[in-house]
Amino acid sequence: MYANDFEYYRATSVAEAVELLVSNEGAEPMAGSHGLLPRMRTGEEAPPVLVDINGIDGLRSIEETEAGLSIGALTTHAEIARSELVQTHAPALAVAAQAVGDIQVRNGGSIGGNLAHGDPRADLPAAVLALGGSVSVTGPDGSSSIDATELFHGDFKTEVGDHEIVTAVEIPVAANTASTYVKYRNPLSGYPLIGVGTWVQTDDGGETIEAARVAATGNLVRSMRLEEVENALIGSAVDKSTIDAAVAEAAVDEELYRQDPQASAAYCNHLLAVRTAEALDTVLAIETN
């Protein structure tokens, strides 16, 4: 199908983009367009105005900051996946970015758009949630930060306001941490049926888990943290029994799963446990940095 008719504006600065969003009823920002455009072509969305932010300078970079990594909103999945900085400091994100779609989609889609789009099937949210990331947004009232835990409302809705632009994704970096992302691909869509992002921080000796974040995405109504799993990890020894205890908590209410033609909620929960175990096996075996 064809996309609906719309007004098109190309913004050259964040301020201009915000101004265009404010002054045009129903306007949507568009970055890589790989989230919005297919939904326009299937008739699921029909924005009357699109504000193209691709022409804004300075939003396509990966930089080390005092707090960690700052990734410009227009940075593509491919660029993130091959970034040595991301691979070193936020491996879960590099793995998740490499797991997105296929080569062409990784070349076309960008991180800011991906997160702001709020597709519950997406890979990146689980990694960003696990890494404790946040997005920087700019709106008519200035700039602010939205923690990933606040970001995803499900069903293509996010905390990003109608008149706000995601400008960057901030990933904190700390010592003695490890992270990864494990995907079980839904053969129908290529999106994860279940994707699990994990991040752990141990003591200097690598014997005790001091902090942990585990997040799931895929066939869920929204990407989410698995706090029971995290609680089972935090303060526990780095050993097999800790993983077993944590994995035992890796389940969500079955109502939190969407319908899939080939996978029931019970099976998704089973996969969630299996993938959580795999992810934890990986991060707790990795020599922390």
């Binding site: 996309a3 568009m30 367009s33 790989h34 297919p38 699109l50 193209d52 062409q104």
Partner: peptide
């Protein structure tokens, strides 16, 4: 790139 996933104006 998938050319059906980009508007020409972009």
């Amino acid at each position: 790139i998938k050319s059906c996933m980009q508007f020409a104006v972009q």
